[in-house]
Amino acid sequence: MSTAGLDRRTRRRQETIEEILSVAIELMETEGVAALSLSAVARRLGMQPPSLYQYFPSKMAIYDALFQRGNELLRDAYRTATVDAEDQLESNLKAATAFCRWCLEHQVYAQLLFWRTIPGFEPSPEAFAPAQESIQDLRDHLQATVDAGLVHPDAVSAGGIALYTSLVAGLLSQQMANEPHASFEDGRFIKLLPVVLEMFYQQYAPTRGRNDRSTSATDRTS
């Protein structure tokens, strides 16, 4: 978050908040996402634990701020990736690639954003807002693909969104579980991303009929 234009006191407070969040991520990388300790964060920053409560009243509040921060970073990476795409399919691939690459390069954030690793944690509406923006971005991409005549309109249905996110999340889960240290270029599972997208396009081929046998269970129940 930019601190430009803020008064000195507000700017210093925001900088301290960013320091707390950065330290929290570092500790989660070494200790585990659910093992975050406010005392450890305070020690790393050289402050007393009670001072930390001036910025975050609880550990859940830190998770909430990280959930929002992570979703904002991911949303921005997703949007930036498609700027120079020459056609819709390339735009889709670039967007999906940016999404997966970001998650593999920020696995602590990915665990917090997409897997329920924190017992009892539920993001606040404010923290969840950028995630909803990302889902809308996905809908817009799929709608543009429909408008280009490349997939059936059912691709933008609730079932279509569910299938798309399940396919991509499945690749990420396999990659992070089996080869967590592999790069995006070298990952055995994540390199299947173009194949997975092609599977999605085939499922929602333009000639697909709403009542034919290829209609998926997710569409029938959506």
Results as ranks from 00 to 15, higher is better:
Met1Cys: 12
Thr3Asn: 13
Gly5Ala: 09
Leu6Cys: 00
Leu6Gly: 03
Gln14Phe: 04
Thr16Ser: 10
Ile17Ala: 03
Glu19Met: 14
Ile25Asp: 06
Met28Ala: 04
Met28Tyr: 01
Glu29Arg: 01
Glu31Lys: 10
Gly32Glu: 00
Val33Pro: 00
Ala34Ser: 08
Ala34Lys: 02
Ala35Gly: 08
Leu36Asp: 06
Leu36Phe: 10
Ser39Gly: 15
Val41Asp: 09
Pro50Glu: 00
Tyr53Arg: 03
Tyr55Asn: 09
Tyr55Asp: 04
Met60Arg: 12
Ala65Asp: 00
Ala65Leu: 06
Ala65Gly: 04
Ala65Phe: 03
Arg69Ile: 07
Asn71Cys: 14
Leu73Ile: 10
Leu73Arg: 12
Leu74Ala: 10
Asp76Ser: 12
Tyr78Met: 07
Tyr78Glu: 09
Arg79His: 13
Arg79Tyr: 13
Ala81Glu: 10
Asp84Phe: 14
Ala85Met: 06
Leu89Met: 07
Ser91Lys: 05
Asn92Ser: 09
Thr97Ser: 03
Phe99Gly: 04
Phe99Ala: 03
Glu105Pro: 05
His106Met: 09
Val108Thr: 13
Ala110Lys: 03
Leu112Lys: 01
Leu112His: 02
Pro125His: 05
Pro125Arg: 05
Glu126His: 11
Pro130Gly: 09
Pro130His: 09
Gln132Trp: 09
Gln136Arg: 15
Gln136Thr: 14
Asp137Ile: 08
Asp137Gln: 12
Leu138Ser: 02
Leu142Ser: 04
Gln143Ala: 13
Val146Ala: 01
Ala148Gln: 04
Pro153Tyr: 10
Val156Ala: 13
Ala158Phe: 07
Ala158Ser: 08
Ala169Ser: 13
Leu172Met: 12
Gln175Leu: 07
Met176Pro: 10
Ala177Thr: 08
Glu179Lys: 09
Gly187Asn: 04
Phe189Glu: 01
Ile190Val: 14
Leu192Trp: 11
Leu193Ser: 06
Leu193Val: 04
Val195Ile: 12
Leu197Arg: 01
Leu197Ser: 01
Leu197Met: 08
Glu198Arg: 11
Gln202Phe: 14
Gln202Gly: 15
Gly209Val: 12
Arg210Cys: 15
Arg213Met: 14
Ser214Pro: 11
Ser216His: 12
Asp219Ile: 11
Arg220Glu: 14
